[in-house]
Amino acid sequence: MSAWATWTASAALLIAAGSASDRSWAAVRPCIPELGARQLELSAGQGVLLGVLGGLRTLVADVSWLRSYVLWERKEEAGCEALMRLACTLDPHARYFWEQTGFAVGLDMANWEIRRRGGYARVSKEVQDHVFAAYARKGIAVLEEGARTSRNRAPFLIVAGQLAEMKVRDQRMAATYYRAAAESEDAPWYAARFAARTAWEAGDRAQAYAWYRDHWSSVLRVRHEDRAPDDLAELRMMEDALGVPAMRRIPRQPWER
């Protein structure tokens, strides 16, 4: 084969290989834990390349998590968050990393910030609430990311709802998260009740009842062997409070107490 033919064949093979690789990558991509370019930029310089380099990702994620403990004990916010996020990035399917990072950012770091400003005795209640809300929103952002990349959505949405309810003090926001958790496949039994309660407390009483009633009829009653009698009892209390006419109430169930 002449030199020209060899170079031409090489170029043709490279182009064909590139095209085949495009198709192959599209098929293979869903099997590989998400490592987007954005995360790579965020954690560059912290050894993420080592993780990218091979299957040692899990080990590097674990080591990064261990190192974050050291910084957590020293209350070094920036370093601790960066290492926790690195662990999440390297092992995005691990629920533990996302959940704990959400808690650390949403709860612990707010406490550190208040202590840094002089402690609970010196920082006014308004400022404390503002700090808690700001950090809780950051924690919720982490949990939302976790819900997108991890296999289990509901646990993240429940924790996000709790942060929204207790720290952001936004019942409507909490209701949105609880509702999303209740509507996901791995929903825990209490998610729907939380969603209805927070929406009710936020003042959206009619909507809360309508959604809860629909969810009980189409999901809870079907999914649970005992047909979710406690949820029905809650619904009856709502019907009483809203003054729903007898004809428009949920028909009495034969098994109902």
């Binding site: 091979g54 299957g55 040692l56 080990l59 691990a94 629920r95």
Partner: peptide
């Protein structure tokens, strides 16, 4: 023996990932 380093995922995943990592690193 390194499974004490394992957080939040199954033990087999940790062992498998460790093995895959060694295979790629040393193989390369």
């Amino acid at each position: 023996a390194f499974r004490f380093l394992n957080f939040g995922h199954g033990e087999l995943k940790f062992v498998a990932d460790f093995g895959f990592g060694i295979l790629f690193l040393f193989g390369s």
